[in-house]
Nucleic acid binder design. Structure first.
Length: 578
RNA sequence: GCCUCUGUAGCUCAGUCGGUAGAGCACAACCAUGGUAAGGUUGGGGUCAGCGGUUCAAAUCCGCUCGGAGGCUCCA
């Protein structure tokens, strides 16, 4: 039996054991559902009183006793009527029984004093559960069956493994995730802040964070020019006409900031950049000879996200998309898609993300555009993904109403997936804005439009990068690349001269002239995760040398300054991590 | 929005039984001038998130409001 199945049986069985423990402690509890999930399990309860963290310990103790008692899990198939009689005082279970399709059997699982409505499978006995290999993690609220209008139940999350060592590894993993939390690192490394009183979900980039962002954006712009894009700038607000025409006021209004009135017209802050790029296209009549247009913009947009959905840099209300729109003839579609995908992968690789997975979303039931265009576009997406040798999944019917798309997800340093790039066809906006080009034969035709974002949003991308590198950016991105640390005051002047020299090389460098002792200066540079520390004293001053202390702790003394400069240039040019 | 937890100095946190606030870091001044992860001394800094209540007395107990964190898809 595959290990995963065994683990999920263990976890599902743990959920039942937890439910038994909760019923022992809180008689009268109404139980809902308790599946196994990735890394663990949960169970939803309707409890007589709110739970506190201390309750988890009590429940854990009861669970350990149940496990120690070594009782079997017994399956029994019953009629609907029997099941309903059995669960007469369990309203959630009754609802579930009614939801079981007629042609399916109703089964029960019993262990000890606890019987649950359950499809199974389970382990044979609680003997197969390890009472030292599980942990209850948290208490949360969850709507019954996930619907906002339903009552809120209390959910207890737990994790379970086959042995204590696996549990410990998983707990270490959780601690690692916590250590890498971009909100924590953002504060520690003085990169950015959010200010509730000034508006939730709006990001303030501090100088050190701005340097990283600058490095990202400079690279991004340069690569766009190299790849045949033009950069454009567009306004942040637009009159209601624009959003009515684009359809945003019809489909997207809840996600938009409310309008501002001026000169008897309503202006909306932009939630997307597309209509603006379209206005540039519409400014004049275009020939097939001019296409494709590839217009990119680091476009800052604002969207209303529910307060509870906001999360650090990952989910914000104001953010900058690395957006571009391609206006192409139908003949150009295949090549352009392939190029966009190639470009995307190149960008992701440059930032250190090597593990990429693609998701292709196809036509949903409700959609605009001709079926043959959808088919052609979807085919183009698949072809491109296959040509690049990417692993992919198809999300049937998961496309937007206006066109199919490819999303790229990357895996970070600790295996978590993040969606960054997206490439979307749009059959809707060219229609709505009546976009045309004049073809070879002199007739007017409709161009295809492709939306794409390679990094997604700069904010989110920055957050992912920060967690991926746990704050230790590779030198080409690092806020400070070099810290100059004079051994004593006699080396201050020389150090300042060295700083000038390194600055002229284009490095981000500072000299620590504080009254701290050298040890403290090293410590400070180290905690800020500065890649290179140059220790400057008598010896170095005498022979134009530097002593290099690398972030990793490695130390190389007596390096010729010119050699050090070459080394760092090389690392930065190749975008290496040290 | 809803559920649970939570809000004390710029940051990380302590504050017992209700008796009107503490530490470390950071910051400032002074001393110390140093060779690979925190030198020393002194000092400034708080409407204990806000409002209301109970009490002789509230950071502490109660209520409301405003934040923050986790969760609210994975269908017995």
């Amino acid at each position: 039996m595959p290990n995963d199945d065994k683990l999920s049986m263990i976890r599902h069985s743990m959920a039942h054991v937890m439910a038994e423990a909760v019923l022992e402690i809180f008689p009268g509890t109404k139980i809902a559902i308790g599946p196994s999930i990735e890394n663990g399990f949960y169970y939803d309860f309707d409890l007589p009183r709110p739970l506190q963290d201390a309750d988890l310990e009590t429940i854990t103790e009861h669970m350990k006793n149940i496990i120690a008692s070594g009782v079997p899990f017994v399956r029994k198939e019953v009629s609907r009527e029997e099941a309903k009689k059995l669960f007469a005082d369990q309203p959630y279970k009754l609802e579930l029984i009614d939801a079981i399709p007629e042609n399916e059997t109703v089964s029960l699982y019993t262990q000890g004093n606890f019987t649950d409505l359950c499809r199974g499978p389970h382990v044979e006995s609680t003997k197969q559960l390890n009472k030292e290999a599980f942990k209850l993690l948290s208490i949360a609220g969850a709507y019954w069956r996930g619907k906002e209008t339903n009552p809120m139940l209390t959910r207890i999350y737990g994790t379970a493994w086959t042995n204590p060592k696996e549990l410990r590894l998983y707990m270490d993993h959780l601690a690692d995730i916590e250590k890498r939390d971009h909100r924590k690192l953002g504060k520690e490394l003085d990169l950015f802040s959010l200010h509730e009183e000034a508006g939730p979900g709006l990001v303030y980039w501090h100088p050190r964070g701005a340097r990283v962002r600058q490095a990202i954006e400079d690279f991004w712009r340069g690569e766009h020019y190299k790849n045949g894009y033009e950069l454009v700038y567009t306004p942040h607000v637009g009159r209601s006409w624009l959003w009515e025409t684009s359809g945003h006021l019809g489909f997207y209004k809840e996600s938009m900031y409310p309008p501002m009135e001026m000169d008897k017209a309503d202006y909306y802050v932009k939630p997307m950049n597309c209509p603006f790029h379209i206005m540039i296209y519409k400014n004049t009549k275009h020939s097939y000879r001019e296409l494709p247009f590839r217009w990119a913009e680091l476009g800052t947009v604002y969207r209303y996200e529910k307060a509870g959905a906001l999360h650090g840099l990952m989910r914000v209300r104001g953010f900058t998309q690395d957006d571009a729109h391609l206006f192409v003839t139908p003949e150009q579609m295949d090549d352009e898609i392939l190029e966009v995908l190639r470009f995307s992968l190149y960008m992701l690789h440059s930032f250190g993300f090597k593990d990429v997975h693609a998701y292709i979303s196809t036509k949903p039931e409700k959609s605009v555009g001709r079926v043959e265009d959808w088919d052609k576009a979807t085919e183009a997406l698949k072809k491109a993904v296959e040509k690049e040798g990417l692993a992919y999944d198809i999300d049937e019917g998961g496309g937007a109403f206006y066109g199919p798309k490819i999303d790229l997800k990357i895996k970070d340093a600790i295996g978590r997936e993040w969606q960054l790039s997206t490439v979307q066809f749009d059959f809707n906006l060219p229609e709505r804005f009546d976009l045309i080009f004049v073809d070879k034969d002199g007739t007017e035709k409709r161009p295809f439009m492709i939306h794409r974002a390679l990094l997604g949003s700069i904010e989110r991308f920055f957050g992912v990068l920060l967690e991926h590198y746990a704050g230790a950016f590779p030198p080409w991105l690092s806020p400070d690349q070099i810290a100059i640390i004079p051994v004593g005051e006699s080396a201050f002047d020389y150090s300042k001269e060295l700083e000038k020299r390194l600055r002229a090389e284009g490095f981000r460098v500072y000299t620590d002239l504080s009254s701290d002792r050298m040890n403290a200066k090293i410590r400070n540079a180290q905690t800020m995760k500065t890649p290179y520390m140059l220790i400057i004293g008598e010896k170095e001053m005498a022979d134009d040398l530097v002593s290099v202390r690398y972030r990793g702790g490695k130390q190389v003394n007596g390096v010729k300054t010119a050699d050090f400069i070459n080394e760092v240039h090389g690392v930065i040019d190749r975008k290496e991590q040290i």
